[in-house]
């Protein structure tokens, strides 16, 4: 049933001159799913995520996200998704509260709604006491959890997480994933990229890209069966090495 698919990608091509970054991608992401989007550096993941989040247009093909066509409704689309990346997230020289207010404002939330959401999300993180602290004073792991909370404060149907957990300790990484599971249980779709292969196992389905194509897409346990190995790390290596 099509309405259960929050992302629909059909025959997606993206070319930069002679270079084909996305070469005929076809996949769907089900509503409420935790979907892992894996691939080697340079496989075309970032290009695809930019298209899915309305920042870039496909050269050809059909892409529908949260009911909106990226070719014709990219502004509507952006209002209905959340996005968090390691490279670009919150403002270091604003306080915690100011970051929430800034992003809430961008998404057109009312002042009252921003206040209520900020309160609730900070309470969940046990960080109410830090709301007037400048962001740069906080440890990286806290910033990542805050960035995630900000990315979902406008109740998007889907949130894109681009390597959200890089560089933090293994306990903090696991706490971050509990936040993801919590949001997922509220019905929010999670679309996540990672280089940690144990995190690939935390996803309900994963796709693996290599050289612009999706080479595999299934549940982690089916992929391991298909490639006859014990870990997602081995699946990943088999796919990426085969293409090289």
């Amino acid at each position: 049933m099509e309405e259960n698919n929050i992302i629909i990608v059909e025959n997606l091509f993206k070319k930069f001159g002679n270079f084909t970054a996305n070469n005929d991608l076809n996949f769907v992401v089900k509503s409420g799913e935790i979907f892992g989007f894996l691939g080697a550096n340079g496989a075309g993941k970032t290009t695809a995520i930019k298209i899915l989040s309305g920042l870039s247009k496909p050269t050809s093909g059909k892409v529908i996200v949260a009911g909106f066509d990226v070719n014709t409704q990219s502004n509507k689309l952006k209002q209905n998704i959340g996005y968090m990346s390691q490279r670009f997230s919150l403002y270091d020289d604003l306080t915690v509260k100011e970051n929430f207010r800034f992003y809430g404002g961008i998404y057109g939330m009312s002042a009252k709604n921003i206040r209520l959401k900020t309160e609730a999300l900070l309470k969940r993180l046990d960080m109410l006491n830090y709301k007037d602290m400048l962001l740069k004073k906080l440890p990286l792991g806290w910033k990542q959890k805050l960035a995630f909370s900000v990315a979902v404060m406008h109740d998007p149907a889907i949130v894109f997480l681009d390597e959200p957990t890089g560089g933090v300790d293994p306990i903090t990484r696991r706490q971050f994933w509990e936040l993801i599971y919590e949001k997922s249980s509220e019905g929010v779709t999670i679309f996540v990229t990672t280089h940690y292969m144990d995190e690939a196992e935390y996803c309900q389905r994963v796709s693996i890209m290599a050289e612009g194509k999706i080479e595999a897409l299934d549940t982690p346990s089916n992929l391991k069966k298909q490639f006859n190995v014990n870990t997602m790390d081995e699946v990943f290596v088999k796919i990426a090495r085969k293409v090289n």
Binding site: N41, E163, D233
Partner: peptide, 10 residues
């Protein structure tokens, strides 16, 4: 190897 994919890391 931070931010480097699993194959390049190996």
């Amino acid at each position: 190897t931070t931010g480097v994919d699993a194959v390049s890391r190996k």
